[in-house]
Structures are given as C-alpha cells and as structure tokens.
Design a protein around this nucleic acid. Structure first.
Length: 572
DNA sequence: GCCGTTTTCGGCCCGACTGTTTTCAGTCG
C-alpha cells in the first residue's frame, strides 16, 4: 500500500508541532509546515514522483533535507526523526496546541511544570485550579481552556460552503443596516470559494468602528464573544461557526480585502515581493516608509507590483503570482457561461420533481439544454430505471421536446459502473440516449488498482461519456475511494470520455487540485448539479467555484458549449 | 529548514487583542 501525500504531510505537521513545543527555531518549524502544505496540495503522489526519479526539491518549500525525508517516509512508512522527537516530547502535546489560547510556550510550560501530556490531564488540571497558579496564566485562561475542551467535544469542524453562505447572507444584511457602515464583504476562504470554511472573515468599512463592533456582538446568532476590540472582534455562533469582523476606513478597503481574503501563502508571497522593493504591505495599505502608496482597491495593489488582478479563487500560491506577472492568468469560467446542466434526477428515480417541471425550471434558468439522468436499477434505494422504464422516459422526453420551446431535453441516464466494470444497462438501450453519465455507487473499498481498473474498463464501453463524481467522496462524511485519478484521466482522454465536477456542496468532486490536473492534461470537464429538485438546479455556482479554483476557462467546460458543439465533443 | 537577477549567509509577514502584567509575552489569523 503506497503512502499517500496526506500521510507524508501529517508526519511533517507533527514534526513541526513538536519542534515548536520544544522551542526550536520558528522558521525551521515554518519550513516543515510549508512542506506539509505543498505535499498535501500536490496533485501527484510523492511515491510516483520518486519512482519516476523526479527531483523533489523542485517542489516549493522542499529542499534537500525535506526531499530526503519524503523519500524515507515513502520507503519505510515512517520518519526516524519523528520517533526521536517523540522520545523527548510526548506526541499528545501536539493536540494541546489546538486548544484556543494555548500555543507552544504554554504547552511546554504545562508539560514541564505540571507534567500534562494529554487533553484528559489538561482538563483535570484546569478543573482543579492548578493551571491558574502558573506564572503568566490566570483564572481566565483556565476557564477558556475548559470552554474550548467542551466545545471540542461537540465535534466542530469546518463548515460546508453552502452552510456558510446561509449564515453569511443575513449577517451581511444586518451589518449593512448599521449606521456609519458603508460596505460589508465576506473575505477569507469564503471569498476564495473553498469547499469548506474554518470561520467567516467579515470586513466592514465604517468610520465608527466601536459602534459597528458593538452591533456585531449583539447579532442574534452570537452565542459567545471571544474578543471585542475597537477594530476587530471574534464571536462564535450558536451553530459553532466562528465569525471574525474587521472594521477598516475606506482608504484601506482594498488592502484589508486583500489581506483577509488570503490565502496566507498568497499574501506572504506578495509581501515578499514588496520587501524586495522596499515596500511594506499590511491590512491598511502598501507603504513606502510612512507614506501610503496604495490600498483603496485590490486592483491598485496588484497593479503596483506589475501583476494582473488575481481572482480570489486562484489565490493559493499555486503559481498564480507568476502567471499574473506574465499576464497569463486564465479567463476563468463564470456562471453566465453555463448553457446547460448534464446531471439531474426526477421522480423517475430518487428526485422530488417531475421531468416536465425540471425542464421548465431549467428553461427559466436560461439554459439551452438539460440532461435527465435518473439512476439505473443497481441503485435500488433510488428505485433506478430498468430498460423498459427508461424506454418510456425516452418517449416522454420526445413528447416534451415537441411541446417545449427554447430548451432541448437530452435523453440520458446515470448508469452504474458494476464491480467488474460493466455498465448496469444493456447497450441497445444506452445506444438510444444522447448522453450517458456513468458512476460508482458500490464497492467503494476496492484496492486502488482494482478500482482504477474497474473504471477504465467501464470507459472501454463505447457508450461511456462522463464519469460522475469521480472519487465518490462526501465532505466530512465519507472519504474518497482509492483510485488513481491521473490514470483515469489519461484513459478518458484516450477514449473521448470526460469527467465531472459535481456541484453538490458536499461532493464538489473533482476537487480543485484534480480539476487543474485535468485542465493541464487538456481534458475537458462537465460541471453538473446532480439536482434532485428544482431548487438544487441553483447549486451550479458551487461547481463553478470549484472549477474556477481549478483554473478552468469556459472552453474547458463541456456545458459552456452549445448542444450542437457538445454533441460533436461527445462523439467517440 | 528554505532560499537567492544585490546574497551560499542571514534573512524569513505583520498587526490586534487578551490576560497577565505594570510594560509585555503569547497567541491568533
């Protein structure tokens, strides 16, 4: 079983945490963290790169030392250095770093003075009032530790983007309705359209910071006020979502928006550019000595460094700054470019809405075509269509197409890929369709090799068009099944098949990294809502966001093309 | 530990807020 990139990244993160607690050089610690991030976000597996004899030091933030350690982890499954550190510093200390208000210094202090090495011991010590007796710590800190521990019990992780949107919209409206507030904008990973957000970063322009903050902490969803200052405040909503508000003056809006949109890596990279030119970038502007030379808009800031404007979705320090310097940023696909939706379900299988209603809703949305893709029989819980039922649906679609103006309903199916790689419906009915979406809904736990082989074999069927939700993941619920996506994409490219970016917020599968991998290979992708109701047709924006994060342009997306062109593209 | 079109050494992003302090260290984003 080859080592996954995420496992290598975990090892480096642990090394970073434990070294930090030991008081190691902070830049050395940072180097391990940066290495971990690079590896985690890298689309190809380190094990493969090593097999191919690639030079790992070409990865950003990976030098000779880390390259050697990656090799060691891949070869032996572990890292001697980490084992040695654990001899000195218990691994349990790393978990204490996650407690709000505890950093490396205090964790070290708790270990040395109270011999605390686990969350359990921490809780006990806090309850016994032993923590407030330590130098530099007090009753408040002790109380905060207990509070955070009980919150962790509730299992708060990251929040799906659609849920975050639901909470952000009314909050923004509430803040906009505050006297003196000129503008409110949600920045952070929310603005970068990341699939999940850790917290909401809200930015407001106002000349009365204190009053704005006061109104913020009085918002009805606020359960706890973590901090409250004159320009900044952090609260926790009832749902457990953390929300930060920053209030800035108008002349700093662009700089603050840039700063709080991130990502951290993107910001640091641009700051380093600034340093090279003797400039300083902070959330209030760009400064030469004391003089502010930019900051009211983001455009102005990028412009100052001879960069084209970088859309938020690209700000991950994955090459966007280099591309911006050479004026080679992609013209990202936008929701307006989408001309149709190629996956949705009706009452024919597990959808909530009739075929005709779906078609009319899509027409209203301005689409030129939609594909009706009910399930095949294998998905028993969804009461999938057998060949006969599908034939009846085909007739109904013919009738509707005669009746409806302005939209073409494509005869289609979401057909299951069976364990052996065959498709769940016979060729003679598949042949009658305009489009076949193929997907895996069973046997998620096959080996990587078998799963890959299964999908590639399915693509050998001449009626295979698009692989839906290619990894089967459900964010926060179900891990992706193990599959070699690069091999699947190569197979798709060779056979005239395509992959999907599924727009369901808990899927968003392919993810951004693999969408970019497809783009780099020249493989087009479909963005589909997989809607099970009329309302879900509106989920398209999440898929578009993920595609934008994957650097996709309109031409890279199948369903930005007219049906005539798309028909040609689907021909194999 | 990484990195270099001034550098192979000496840098490495920067400011707000809290809690504990009497002027600041630690933490956070």
């Amino acid at each position: 079983m080859p080592i996954h990139n995420s496992e290598i990244a975990d090892v480096f993160s642990q090394v970073a945490d434990l070294l930090e607690i030991e008081g190691a050089n902070e830049f050395r610690v940072r180097a391990y963290r940066k290495g971990a991030r690079t590896i985690k976000g890298y689309p190809r597996s380190m094990a493969e790169l090593i097999d191919e004899g690639q030079d790992l030091t070409e990865l950003s933030g990976v030098g000779k030392d880390l390259a050697g350690k990656i090799q060691e982890i891949v070869k032996t499954g572990g890292l001697r250095q980490l084992e040695e550190i654990k001899q000195r510093t218990p691994a349990g200390l790393a978990r204490m770093l996650k407690i709000e208000g505890l950093g490396p210094k205090r964790v070290q202090q708790l270990y040395e003075e109270l011999d605390i090495t686990s969350l359990d011991q921490l809780e006990k010590a806090a309850k016994n009032g032993r923590i407030q007796k330590l130098d530099g710590l007090g009753p408040k800190t002790e109380e905060n530790i207990l509070q955070d521990l009980s919150r962790q019990d509730e299992g708060q992780g990251r929040t799906l983007l659609n849920i975050a949107e639901e909470m952000a919209r009314p909050l923004v409206a509430y803040l906009e309705d505050t006297e003196g507030v000129e503008r409110v904008k949600v920045a952070g990973s929310f603005r970068r359209r990341k699939e999940t957000v850790g917290d909401l970063d809200v930015l407001a322009i106002s000349d009365s910071g204190e009053e704005t903050i006061q109104r913020f902490v009085e918002y009805e969803d606020v359960e706890e006020i973590v901090s409250q200052g004159e320009t900044r405040s952090t609260v926790v909503f009832r749902s457990g979502l953390q929300v930060d508000l920053r209030v800035v003056p108008r002349e700093s809006y662009g700089a603050a928006l840039f700063y709080f949109t991130g990502s951290k890596d993107h910001n640091i990279a641009l700051r380093n550019m600034a340093l090279d030119e003797g400039l300083k970038v902070n959330e209030y502007g760009v400064f030469r000595d004391e003089e502010r030379i930019a900051g009211e808009t983001e455009d102005e800031i990028y412009d100052l460094f001879d960069l084209t404007y970088v859309p938020p979705e690209l700000r991950e320090n994955r090459g966007e700054l280099e591309a911006a310097r050479e004026d080679k940023l992609p013209a990202l696909v936008a929701s307006d470019d989408i001309r149709g939706d190629l996956q949705m379900h009706t009452t024919g299988s597990d959808g909530d809405t009739s075929l005709e209603e779906m078609a009319r809703a899509a027409l209203e949305q301005g689409y030129g075509y939609v594909a009706i893709t009910d399930h095949s029989p294998q998905v028993a819980v969804a009461q999938g269509l057998d060949a006969e039922a599908l034939a009846r649906q085909i007739d109904e679609i013919d009738r509707l197409n005669d009746e409806l103006e302005g939209i073409k309903i494509l005869k289609a199916i979401e057909v299951d890929i069976l364990e052996d790689g065959s498709l769940d419906l016979p060729d003679d009915i598949l042949e009658r369709l305009d489009l076949r979406i193929c997907s895996v809904h069973s046997y998620f736990n096959l080996s990587r090799e078998k799963q890959t082989e299964r999908i590639v074999r399915a693509m050998d069927n001449q009626y295979f068009n698009i692989l839906a939700h290619p990894t089967g993941r459900r964010i926060g619920e179900r891990a992706p099944y193990d599959v070699d996506l690069e091999q699947v994409m190569e197979a798709a490219l060779a056979r005239g098949c395509f992959l999907e970016v599924n727009a369901q917020p808990q899927r968003l599968d392919l993810d951004d990294v693999h969408a970019k991998m497809a783009k780099d290979m020249g493989l087009k992708l479909a963005i589909n809502t997989d809607a099970h109701s009329v309302a879900e047709l509106k989920l398209m924006r999440f898929g578009v966001g993920q595609a934008r994060r994957g650097w996709l342009e309109a031409d890279d997306v199948l369903n930005t093309h007219s049906w005539e062109d798309l028909k040609g593209l689907l021909e194999r």
